[in-house]
Deep mutational scan, measured.
Amino acid sequence: LKTAGVNTTDKEMEVLHLRNVSFEDAGEYTCLAGNSIGLSHHSAWLTVLEALEERPAVMTSPLYLEIIIYCTGAFLISCMVGSVIVYKMKSGTKKSDFHSQMAVHKLAKSIPLRRQVTVSADSSASMNSGVLLVRPSRLSSSGTPMLAGVSEYELPEDPRWELPRDRLVLGKPLGEGCFGQVVLAEAIGLDKDKPNRVTKVAVKMLKSDATEKDLSDLISEMEMMKMIGKHKNIINLLGACTQDGPLYVIVEYASKGNLREYLQARRPPGLEYCYNPSHNPEEQLSSKDLVSCAYQVARGMEYLASKKCIHRDLAARNVLVTEDNVMKIADFGLARDIHHIDYYKKTTNGRLPVKWMAPEALFDRIYTHQSDVWSFGVLLWEIFTLGGSPYPGVPVEELFKLLKEGHRMDKPSNCTNELYMMMRDCWHAVPSQRPTFKQLVEDLDRIVALTSNQEYLDLSMPLDQYSPSFPDTRSSTCSSGEDSVFSHEPLPEEPCLPRHPAQLANGGLKRR
C-alpha cells in the first residue's frame, strides 16, 4: 500500500477492503520488508465503517432481458387475439339477427356486388357501394332449370318492384348476347291500381351458361335502374322476379327496335343500305322527324346527366323506338370495365364501338358527360344519314391518327348547316368547349319548333354512299384517289349506291 502524500496522485493510491473487522481494529498499520540489502516499511491507516445491508444481486445478463421482452410480447399478442375474438363473436351475433329477418339465414357465401355510379365530372372515377344484393341458397326452386355456371341464388325481396312469376307470361326471344337474352312477355297487374291490365314488356334474363359475374352484372344493372328513376326518353324498369327461380328483370318494350335499324328501314327506295329491288320502305321521314329523334335522345341524356350517370356507349344501336315513335335510351345501367376495353373487338352487330368514342376516352380512358356529348355528335350523324356507319372504310389504326390530326366527318347530304355545326361543336377537341346536354336540348327544341312538318328529305341527293353492312375495317380495292379515307367507291362485286358527282362522300373527313 502506498501512503497518500504531497507527490502522490489518486491513481497511485490503493485501497484495500477488509471484511470481518471490528471498531477496535482501527488504527495505523505498518508493513515491514527487508533483505540483505536493507529494510523498508510503509504505513497505512485502517478505517472501520459500519456494515452495509446486503441486497440480492440483480440479473442483468442479456438472457434475462430477452426473457422479459418475449414474455411482454406474448402477453400483448394474447390481449389482441382475445379482443378480435370477442369482436367477431359480437358482430356475428348481429349479422345472424339481420339475416334471420331477411329469411336467408341458411346461406353459405355471398357474391360481392358493387353498384357502380359514375359521379366525377372530369374523370372516370366511380363510387362503389358494397351493398350485398344477392346471396346463394341451398334451396332449389321447382319447375325452373338450374344454371350451369351459377347455382340457385336467393335475393332479398323488394316489394316496390317484385312481380309474382305467375303473372308473367314469357314469349318469343327479342335478342341475346354472350350470356344474357331478352324475350318478349306479357305482364299482368304491373299497375297496382289496375291488377288485371296486360302490358307487353321485355324481360332480361341469363342464359344457361351464365357465370356468377353475369348474374352480378344483371343485378347491378337492375339496381342502377331503380336508383336513376323514370323518364320518358329512357328504358324504364317496370319490375322484377327475384324469388323462387331465376332472376327476371322486366323493362319497357320498344316494338320498333333500335334507332339504327328504324332509320335504315325508312330509307327511300333505291337508297337503302343494302340493295333490294323488292324493298318496301316504312313511312317516309321528314326533316322534323329526324330533328325530333335527336331532341328526344338529348332529353334522355340530359336526364341521365342530372342523375350523375355517364353512359359511355351512346349510339343509335343503343336507342330503342316504341310503337308511338318515342326514343328511349337503353343500356345506361350496364357495368362496363373501362380499363379492359378491346379497341379492335367488334360488337355483336359488327360495329366498332371506338368510332363513337371521344379522343380523351379513346386515348386516356377518361369518361365524362362531355365524352358522352362527343358520342351524341356521332349519333346525330347516324340520324341524318338514316343509319349510316361512321368513318366507313377507315381502319382503327388510321382512325386514331386522323382524330389526333383533327379530322372530322363531313356534313351529311340531308343536314342543315346549323345541325352540322352542332355536330362539329360536339366533336370539339377540348371537352370543356363542347355543349352540355342542357344546351343541346334548348337548341334542338328551337330547331324542332322552326322546322315544318312538310319538309321531307331531299331525294335528289344520296343519303349515304356507303354500305354499312360491310365491315368498317375493310380497305376498299376500288376507292377513288389515293386515300380511301376521303372517298369510298362501290366494290365491283357488290351493289352500292351511285356516287353523286358534285357531292363529297358523306363519310369523308374534314380537318377541324
Rank of each mutant, 00 (worst) to 15 (best):
R167T: 12
V169D: 06
G171S: 14
P173S: 03
L174Q: 01
G175E: 03
E176G: 04
G177C: 03
Q181L: 08
V182M: 01
E186A: 04
A187G: 06
L190V: 03
P195H: 03
R197C: 05
R197H: 10
R197S: 04
V198G: 09
T199S: 03
K200Q: 13
V201M: 10
A202S: 12
V203L: 09
K207Q: 04
S208P: 08
T211P: 13
D214E: 11
L215W: 08
D217H: 06
L218M: 11
E221G: 03
E223V: 13
M224R: 01
M225R: 01
M225T: 02
K226Q: 12
M227K: 07
M227V: 06
G229W: 07
N233T: 14
I234S: 07
L238R: 11
C241W: 03
Q243P: 14
G245V: 04
P246A: 08
Y248D: 04
I250F: 04
E252G: 15
A254D: 02
G257D: 09
L259R: 00
R260Q: 01
Q264L: 09
Q264P: 01
P269L: 15
G270R: 12
L271P: 04
E272D: 07
C274F: 11
C274W: 14
Y275S: 15
N276I: 06
S278I: 06
H279P: 05
H279Q: 08
N280T: 15
L285P: 07
S292C: 10
C293F: 08
A294G: 05
Y295F: 06
A298S: 09
A298D: 01
R299G: 14
M301L: 05
M301R: 00
E302D: 15
K307M: 12
H311N: 01
D313H: 00
D313V: 01
L314V: 09
A316S: 05
V319G: 01
T322A: 15
T322S: 13
K328M: 15
I329M: 12
F332V: 02
G333A: 00
G333R: 00
L334H: 03
A335S: 04
D337Y: 15
I338N: 01
H339Q: 13
D342G: 15
Y344H: 12
K345T: 03
N349T: 04
G350C: 02
L352R: 02
V354E: 02
K355N: 11
R365W: 15
R365Q: 13
Y367H: 05
F376V: 05
E382Q: 03
F384S: 05
L386M: 05
L386R: 09
K401E: 05
K401R: 10
L402Q: 11
G406R: 01
H407P: 00
H407L: 04
S413T: 09
N414Y: 12
C415G: 02
T416S: 09
N417I: 06
N417H: 13
E418D: 12
M421I: 10
M421T: 12
D425N: 08
C426Y: 01
H428R: 10
H428Y: 07
H428N: 09
A429E: 05
P431T: 01
Q433E: 05
F437C: 01
K438M: 14
K438T: 11
Q439E: 11
V441E: 05
A449V: 08
L450S: 12
S452F: 06
S452Y: 10
S452T: 09
N453Y: 11
Q454K: 10
Y456N: 14
D458A: 06
D458V: 07
L459P: 13
S460P: 14
M461K: 06
D464N: 12
Q465L: 06
Q465R: 11
P468H: 11
P468R: 08
S469C: 10
S469N: 09
T473N: 09
S475C: 13
S475N: 12
S476Y: 13
C478F: 13
G481A: 15
S484P: 15
S484T: 14
V485I: 15
